[in-house]
């Protein structure tokens, strides 16, 4: 059984992925419109105060969720949830930088065994290094039985 505290000591809060990207306004607006969003600043790319829709921000944390040397715990991680914290409006069409670290690791035990929860957090910065938003991705791994 993997030692959760040891994992936390070794991996928490260390940036393991950095990437530059630009959000295309129409892509975010598409997600917003299909969601049923009604606010023009999310659905109209021509709106003066257009900003990236929170659910689109959540998609930015997809991809490599774990440090490359993170140990295999069992089966493939399942997408257990996502969270977005909006600190400033995230603009479209401008360079952004995403930095990802493991924010939390915890476990829960039940009748079917132990589940390990891994929270990876992407911090999204603009070109002026202002922190705009946090995008958390919650991965759930059913630990492989040792028997």
């Amino acid at each position: 059984m993997v030692d959760i505290e040891a994992l936390k000591s070794k991996y928490l809060n260390l940036v393991f992925d950095r990437r530059d990207f630009t959000v295309q306004a129409e892509n975010s607006a598409t997600v917003a419109r299909i969601s049923g969003e009604t606010r023009p600043e999310y659905i109209d790319p021509a709106h003066a105060a257009f900003e990236v829709f929170p659910a689109y921000i959540a998609s930015l944390s997809s991809g490599r969720h774990l440090p490359i040397d993170f140990p295999a715990l069992g089966g493939l991680p399942v997408d257990g949830g996502k969270a977005v914290t909006s600190l400033q409006p995230v603009p479209a069409g401008v360079p952004l930088n995403g930095r990802t670290h493991l924010h939390d690791i915890y476990d829960k035990s039940g009748r079917s065994g132990r589940m390990v929860f891994l929270i990876s957090r992407m911090e999204i910065y603009d070109a002026a290094e202002k922190l705009l938003a946090l995008a958390d991705s919650r991965m759930v791994i059913r630990e492989r039985s040792e028997s």
């Binding site: 997600v31 299909i34 969601s35 049923g36 969003e37 009604t38 829709f53 949830g81 996502k82």
Partner: peptide, 14 residues
């Protein structure tokens, strides 16, 4: 999943 989140955001804003 992100569309589910979108539904929730849309409800709040609506």
């Amino acid at each position: 999943g992100i569309l589910g989140m979108g539904f929730l955001c849309a409800l709040i804003h609506r």
